[in-house]
């Protein structure tokens, strides 16, 4: 189970987060890893819950499209996670304007991400922080879902959940409206926003504040009503937000949406629209998304991972 500390040699610091420092490391066979050292702060506050969540889920999940936890060990009163070393992430790829995306490339990234997410969901795990920078990319081009610091087990119906999850631009409307009961469909919304971003090469609904995010979502997708989203008016923040946001926007017709995504096929638009449905129960599951005509019928076939666009600095 737990390996010895001297099996891995830390080479250089790659980054530092709130609860961990990440190092590039190698073992005796010269394999490269990312070692995440969890800060314990002299035990004053116990181990950070995000670190605990990451550890608990990565120990149980194995999938080609989820970051692999190879090993764990402790040394000098530090917990260390030995993770797959990944060279880039989807945010970098989207922002690198020297790269040209083909329709088939976007399909491949979506396919791999949804497969990884499907594995999480069938294991009853909600990720709750999907965004391009958490979709890492391996040297062979495979997408790896990472950062399980906000993940949790799907709740029982009577359990209260916190609505303050998911990075703002990818936050589903039920979260924006303060829902305490939600499901894996918040991850589907986030994937929908990522899908749009892959096509636009810029974030689809980039709110400047939590309030602006609501306003912008309504402007982009129309103001939700009881008719299109039964139950919306009883969500905790609905009344408050509706008095502050006076302007009402109609739901944009399909013709307008297709103008926003000029290069997108009908199958792609259908999938996108369904993932960004206001009513969470109308969004597809990972399974129905993966079985949608976009993936199973329509050409082109997704690009093979190794042939996907890569930044020039991309090396293993």
């Amino acid at each position: 189970m737990a390996a010895s500390a001297n099996k891995y040699k830390l080479i250089k610091k790659l980054g530092e987060g709130t609860y961990a420092v990440v190092y590039k490391a190698t073992d005796a066979q010269n394999n490269t890893y990312a070692v995440k050292r969890i800060k314990l702060g002299e035990f004053k506050d116990g181990i950070d819950i995000s670190a605990i969540r990451e550890l608990k889920f990565l120990q149980e999940i194995r999938h080609v499209n989820v970051i692999a936890l190879y090993d764990v060990y402790s040394d000098q009163e530090t917990l260390n996670l030995v993770l797959e070393f990944l060279v880039s992430d989807l945010e970098h790829i989207i922002q690198d304007k020297s790269l040209i995306f083909q329709t088939a490339d976007i399909k491949a990234w979506m396919l791999m991400s949804l497969r990884g997410l499907h594995h999480c969901h069938r294991s009853y795990i909600m990720h709750r922080d999907l965004k391009p920078s958490n979709l890492l990319i391996a040297a062979d081009g495979n997408i790896k879902i990472a950062d399980f610091g906000l993940a949790r087990v799907a709740a029982y119906p009577q359990e209260y959940l916190t609505p303050t999850v998911v990075t703002r631009w990818y936050r589903a409307p039920e979260l924006l409206l303060g829902s305490r009961h939600y499901t894996e469909s918040v991850d589907i919304w986030a994937m929908g926003a990522i899908f749009a971003e892959l096509m636009l090469r810029t974030p689809y609904i980039p709110g400047a504040s939590d309030f602006d995010q609501v306003e912008l979502t309504f402007r982009v997708l129309g103001t939700p009503t009881e008719e299109i989203w039964p139950g919306v008016s009883s969500l905790p923040l609905y009344d408050d937000l509706m008095t502050k946001i006076t302007q009402r926007h109609p739901v944009p017709p399909p013709s307008e949406i297709s103008l926003r995504f000029m290069a997108a096929s009908t199958a792609a638009l259908n999938l996108l629209n369904s993932m960004l449905e206001y009513d969470p129960s109308k969004r597809p599951t990972t399974e129905s998304a993966l079985l949608s005509p976009y993936f199973v019928e329509e050409l082109p076939r997704p690009t093979k991972p190794q042939n996907l666009p890569k930044p020039p600095s991309f090396s293993s």
Binding site: M1, A2, L40, F43, I47, F57, V72, L79
Partner: peptide, 17 residues
Amino acid sequence: IGQCEFYLIEEMGMCLI
């Protein structure tokens, strides 16, 4: 208690679920 938490996680081989 923080120290005990650490030893607990360590003894369990970091298997938490």
